[in-house]
Design a protein around this nucleic acid. Structure first.
Lengths: 248, 248
DNA sequence: TACCGAGTATGGTCAGACCATACTCCAGGG
DNA sequence: CCCTGGAGTATGGTCTGACCATACTCGGTA
């Protein structure tokens, strides 16, 4: 029986290990190319099919991107797109109902309150910096994000159906997360909203009128712009309570 | 030329769509089996290799698990293990350094403060319920998690090297996150800590003495047990400042 | 110089084969 | 009757070899 426990590693798993070592060891960076499938297969002594399965995994994790054809950009190129992977992960986990809506909304609350607070703080810091005349790229990021949030608010006012409304609603909330300046938090937010898109549309349909939600958005946006972290966080909490009254 | 934009969908992507539709539409649940690779290939009109690539993706996303052999549990079974997928995702994203340490630690701060606060609140609610004699499964989860945290603290006292210390440190912090009762937050925490394991070991080595960190853990644990959310959150912040002084 | 076609490296896909595994089932012995 | 062992079989795991579509590279030609 060989109380081994560890199932014999499959060929593609070995490929994954080797490739990850190569990334960490050789200091490969985004934009660098991996060897071709045939070459990699020969180097590692496995079939091309196994190499392909490994590459598919890496593609799923958002670290490589494959292009056909020939030239400098052909083949498997290292990238860093964790967003879609995160989104897929959460969406599938939700549809397998391994998570409750309550847990997801609580997580949103955590992220959005934090984001709004930090975006507001950054607003203050930036106002101070502006006086000195040096804004910096962080300020640019935040400024762009808040502009995007404002645009999303207008788009929501003009939205003709729940699907369109939710699309801009997602844009708004992601923009607030981006305004915090933390890309990891923003990525999680984007994934979360993308994964629960369907639920959000249903929630809006149940609600009927979106006037309350739109007014909430304005309050959040105003508070962040004003650098009032406490008010921004409170506005976020109120907003989610309006969107999902059954949980509060 | 055909300003199409959308690269022709690959065969395995079509398989993914079909399988996801089947999961959502047929109401498949965790534990249910997918058709065999050969059967799926025939149904969808693609080769077995393409089906395998799709299954590999699903496996990466933690929604299926494959077993060889025969019987009720053989084949591709629906599961829900988002943890390892999340961990891999973050680890690779970090090693491609698309994220700064600052962003990661800030995210940890957000999650751990929130977890500690909620674990403390749950502690209060449970104390009230205990008086009535009905604890419930939520209380069990929390109780088990806090016991695990206590065990991890003792193990850290006995740890002989940074690697061992960090292993139990991760267990402690994950346990606190689990004590919040939110599995999504706990999963993100687990992934985050797993992904930055190497960095944590280096940080401990730089620090030398772990006495301060161990004392921090005791303060966090005490505060959560006592149901003192504010103190618990503050203790978490102090703890991370001790672990990563260069960021504060 | 500008254009156009052959050459070629790359991923995408398929068909078919064989192996290892682990359950199922049944015959035979206790 | 129960138990045990072996044959049967469905499943994933792996490999080989082939062909296609794509998109760049390079050389020849107008």
């Amino acid at each position: 029986m060989a109380a081994d426990g560890t199932r014999r590693t499959r060929a593609f798993e070995e490929v994954l290990l080797q490739v990850e070592h190569r990334i960490a060891g050789d200091g490969l960076k985004v934009g660098d190319r991996l060897p071709g499938e045939r070459q990699l297969a020969e180097q590692l002594g496995v079939s091309r099919a196994s190499v392909r399965e490994a590459i598919r995994v890496l593609e799923t994790l958002g670290v490589v991107s494959s292009q056909v054809g020939r030239g400098p950009d052909a083949g498997a190129v290292l990238t860093s797109r964790p967003d879609s992977a995160l989104t897929d992960l959460l969406r599938l986990s939700l549809s397998l109902s391994s998570l409750s809506l309550r847990e997801v909304i609580d997580t949103r609350l955590m992220i959005e309150r934090w984001s709004a607070e930090h975006a507001a703080h950054t607003a203050n810091a930036n106002r101070a910096a502006d006086v000195d005349g040096n804004a910096g790229t962080d300020g640019d990021t935040r400024h762009d994000a808040l502009a995007a949030a404002a645009a999303a608010m207008e788009a929501m006012d003009a939205a003709r159906d729940p699907e369109e409304f939710v699309r801009h609603d997602i844009a708004f909330h992601v923009a607030i997360a981006e305004a915090s300046g933390n890309r990891l938090v923003a990525a999680v937010m984007r994934a979360l909203r993308g994964a629960m898109r369907k639920y959000a549309i249903e929630a809006v349909e149940r609600l009927g009128d979106t006037g309350v939600l739109r007014e909430d958005h304005r309050r959040i946006h105003r508070a962040v712009l004003a650098g009032d972290a406490a008010t921004a966080a409170e506005a976020v909490t109120v907003h989610l309570a309006h969107a999902y009254p059954e949980l509060f």
